[in-house]
Write a protein that binds this DNA or RNA. Sequence first.
DNA 1: TATTTTTTTTAGATTTGTCTAAATTTAATT
DNA 2: AATTAAATTTAGACAAATCTAAAAAAAATA
Lengths: 221, 221
Amino acid sequence: MKYSISKENYLKAIFHLQNENGVVTTNELAAALLTKPASVTDMLKKLKAQRLLIYEKYKGFKLNNEGRKVALQIIRKHRLWEYFLVEKLQFGWDEVHEMAEELEHFTHKKLIDRLDTFLNYPKSDPHGDPIPDSNGKFDQQQKQISLPHLSLHRTAKVLAISPQTKEILELLQHKNILIGTKIEVKKKFSFDDSLELKVNNRTAVTISAAVAKSILVNDDQ
Amino acid sequence: MKYSISKENYLKAIFHLQNENGVVTTNELAAALLTKPASVTDMLKKLKAQRLLIYEKYKGFKLNNEGRKVALQIIRKHRLWEYFLVEKLQFGWDEVHEMAEELEHFTHKKLIDRLDTFLNYPKSDPHGDPIPDSNGKFDQQQKQISLPHLSLHRTAKVLAISPQTKEILELLQHKNILIGTKIEVKKKFSFDDSLELKVNNRTAVTISAAVAKSILVNDDQ
DNA sequence: TATTTTTTTTAGATTTGTCTAAATTTAATT
DNA sequence: AATTAAATTTAGACAAATCTAAAAAAAATA
Ligand SMILES: [Mn+2]
Ligand SMILES: [Mn+2]
Ligand SMILES: [Mn+2]
Ligand SMILES: [Mn+2]
């Protein structure tokens, strides 16, 4: 099956919204795709007719098995291209998302599998998000906690950033906080919940509560 | 400026047809794009309105400066991706054209320039066609002659294949004739104009007149 | 030159994805 | 429960790219 770029974007967005709640609403999806609720309703009908979606009028919607399968392949492509752009073309992890938004719609499965081989089957993308294999499966993720929940003086590794706005990624890039970076919380200031960190056992860095919440580290309790 | 995939395909096809004649006709272009003359006329009006094309009703058409510039960038992308697919992802030169047809429409100029750097600024694609630089210029090509015009017992290097149908490329792949391959003509049979070759100073290979005409080698008179 | 054939353009439809404005359904509040 | 507000869907329109059938122009040929 081949689906239009627009349909693929809808499927991927539904997949991501589902992960947080269970069922997705028209307004939510319209906001995520920067489009109008009426356009979403139009598309939902088409996706349902193509048997990619479970949807009853006014009841919300979610992907069925086939829709999930398609979404996972798009996510696989997105993340493999991001990895390629960072590892091979030397882009910063904060500049690759937009390019991957375009590349993820490329259709030749064989190319994607070869790219995977060329990159040596990476397990996660430059933002720490797992890369599904060609069957749509990915490894069990390590348990993650956000930085404000990490105990003082316990060293942990950055696994992911969420949400990943261009702005946060740019800031973290500047402070040398990357996926895989070792972080220890040295001090919590209750005044504004800002944190002072040791990054890679070296520099002392201060970050706001908002930034701290977006940094996910491993929870090795 | 950003142009639709469809418009880009029109511009590229016009560019290639121009190189043979000077002015392009509606039927020619329709045939090249596997579409109908009426559709071509529709698009010509749009391209003219966007100032990419010189076109008067019933008079044929050709690219103007701006159109040529756009076409050359698409060709640059096409050929760089082909090079990438062959050199890095280990595809055969006979399988990459279709994939490049899709990849050539990706828009981020910075990505293409980084890809160029990553590939070490290749001068020509896997089929021997020159790759324009980021300003749309390419090197002066070596003088080319087709194999039937090469003198007996003179060794020459394969520079290009033209035309490049999937079928010819597959056949040449099978006979180990690639860009850069050294060829010597051992014998010409006047009965059917078939040739017996020495390929890379080793095997004796026989090819038909039709195949020979499509192989272009350097003319070192 | 007159007639026929070929090429090109126009007219009118269709599909896909989008939009605004209005109608309908569901949810929240008095 | 009645009313108001919010969410969702429908109706009708539009732009892009395509098509078929018919008309118009150019080229070929008798
Ligand atoms: Mn991304
Ligand atoms: Mn990512
Ligand atoms: Mn090609
Ligand atoms: Mn090529």
